[in-house]
Design a protein around this nucleic acid. Structure first.
Lengths: 216, 216
DNA sequence: AGAAGGCATTACCCGCTAGTATATTTTTCG
DNA sequence: CGAAAAATATACTAGCGGGTAATGCCTTCT
């Protein structure tokens, strides 16, 4: 999370460093995380505009100005939420990439992991897709670049698999976009507490992606 | 479009029938359609809550109360928009079904036609997916039933193809959901005036669907 | 031409919410 | 302990947007 415009003022103690600075920043981070968590849940069920900061404050057993201590405003909270889902997916891609295996296993593992994250961070991603348009131009573009990077990396993995002769696809970059579509669709068929477990849906999604690139 | 709760009061001339009744109703329908058209565009770019009726009125070079003559309120406008995309897709399915051919050709033609509609009614469908939650419980359920009917019919077509030995899929009903996902994803990769033409995207989407059911 | 009534507009209200200035509590540390 | 400052709460404002009378215009038929 770039703290660029999202975080507001955990205002520095002007003079000397008093009590545990590290603890302080940790506490701040925790509070911000809690706010985001609850905000994502709220935005998810009410929608961004319909949700009020008062509701959010109530859920946290706090008050509106409390929120303004940790975020510049409503828009900043939304921005942080939108960013989180995407960055986490990219981080997962990085993490998996280290576990080097064959290109096809790497692709499979990546898809499965991302599917898991999508289910885990369900609310964040739904909010992102839905409320994107409420972001500032600059924030929206920054996050979109991250999304594109994701597609690019999936595309690269597919191409690697093609190179290694595991699969055959006509147009890898295009295909990566459709894979992105399948993965995003998870958010629509998985609802927490539905009949199908998260793992089952993740598995199904991954299988669908594999079929898409001609693997059964 | 069920006029149940969406249309408001084109209030009947109480006594006798004066001028061209048919023309009258036609004009009313036209105005409603224009409102929906512009509303869809507006909701698409601003989001439902952020869009104001004043903006909508301005786009139509009219005023707020004008809108209230033809729709019960903001929610009714949204409802009509949401309904339109889905019903049109179902109608297309009906239309294609009459052109009876082999089951596989029927499936292909249906997918292509629906893809076209999705591109055509892009804004309506994006608004539907995004703003669903702002609908009344009852309206939301009615529209959701239509969506399910769509999935069911696609699933049926797939099963027919399997029966006729054209393709092999492990779980047709589940697969129809993923196909729905791919089709919906069109709305995210197609933007009017983008580099790829609508037809090209529709074609790509259809091909992706076919790969999903194991056809190349 | 002139009444009658529908169609659209101007002008208004009410409720709500993002954001803020001010007060109060709680923590920190000499 | 007690003062300073940091953290949180209370109380308020300003402006906006959905919805609604009240009003005027313009068609239409006699």
């Amino acid at each position: 999370m770039t703290k660029s415009s999202t975080a507001a003022k955990p205002r520095q103690r002007s003079t000397a460093a008093p009590t545990g600075r590290e603890i302080r920043t940790g506490v701040v981070a925790f509070k911000q995380a809690r706010i985001l968590e609850e905000a994502a849940a709220l935005f998810f069920e009410k929608g961004y505009e319909a949700a009020t900061l008062e509701m959010l404050a109530d859920r946290l057993s706090a008050t509106k100005p409390f929120l303004y201590t940790y975020f510049k405003g409503k828009a900043a909270i939304l921005c942080a939420i939108c960013e989180l889902g995407v960055t986490e997916s990219l981080a997962a891609l990085d993490r998996i990439a280290e576990t080097e295996r064959t290109s096809i296993d790497l692709l499979k593992a990546s898809l499965r992991e991302v599917a898991k994250i999508i289910i885990d961070r369900n609310e964040y991603l739904v909010v992102y897709q839905r409320e994107m348009m409420n972001l500032d131009r600059t924030d929206a573009q920054r996050i979109l670049r991250l999304r594109h990077e994701f597609d690019l990396r999936i595309g690269k993995m597919i191409e690697d698999c093609v190179r290694d002769g595991y699969i055959t696809v006509p147009d890898a970059p295009a295909m990566s976009i459709w894979i992105g579509g399948l993965l995003s669709w998870i958010t629509y068929c998985y609802r927490p507490g539905s009949s199908r477990s998260g793992d089952a849906v993740a598995d199904q999604a991954m299988k669908a992606c594999l079929r898409l690139i001609g693997l059964d």
